[in-house]
């Protein structure tokens, strides 16, 4: 059963029509000792049904530690947002090749439910070629940042 009502599904399907390239949601999970991995999977599974350009790449946190490290993931459930530059949807064979992904450095730790689901949709739209909502002044300010910076933004599910 879907978590989203049919009106939300229709609205998201329309929004995802803007996607111009495949968005890969790398879902870091493990089968044991992760209370909320199943609910995160349930939320994520809503999305590929709404657009062929949203792809869930499940990564076993225990078996693929190198991949987790590469994306700076040290806990589960976690999501890293990436995109592919080659569009499999318009490719002749329709194959989804996730070999060459561009990392957006957008991460979610924990289940993106409630308001965070909105953030996840925004992240998908951005990664899929959507326009940044930042002002021109902000973008110029950000361009001057030359050192690595890590932001943790704490939220709650409501």
């Amino acid at each position: 059963m879907s978590l989203l009502g049919s009106a939300d599904q229709t609205r998201l399907r329309t929004e995802f029509e803007q996607l111009t390239r495949p968005v890969h949601l790398l879902f870091f999970t493990q089968s044991l000792g992760c209370e909320t991995c199943a609910q995160t999977r349930q939320v994520l599974n809503e999305l590929p049904a709404l657009s062929s350009r949203v792809i869930i790449d499940e990564v076993n946190f225990v078996l693929e530690p190198d991949r987790a490290r590469r994306y700076g993931i040290d806990r589960v459930p976690a999501i890293a947002v990436a995109y592919a530059q080659i569009d499999h949807v318009s490719a002749a064979d329709g194959s989804a090749d996730s070999g060459d992904l561009v990392d957006t450095r957008i991460r979610f730790l924990g289940t993106p439910a409630g308001y965070e689901f909105v953030s996840l949709v925004q992240a998908v739209l951005l990664a899929g070629g959507g326009e940044s909502q930042l002002s021109e002044a902000s973008r110029q300010r950000l361009a001057s940042v030359q050192r690595p910076v890590t932001l943790h933004v704490f939220t709650t599910p409501t």
Binding site: R105, S119, L134, A143, V149, T150, T155, P157
Partner: peptide
């Protein structure tokens, strides 16, 4: 949260984590 994510997307030097606080009480603490 979207603002921090926008910043990460705009700058190759910024990484932004949205942390669900109730699921990660150790980080919240």
């Amino acid at each position: 949260m979207t603002l921090a994510h926008e910043m990460a997307f705009a700058s190759p030097h910024i990484t932004a984590y949205a942390v669900e606080a109730t699921e990660h009480p150790d980080l919240a603490r």
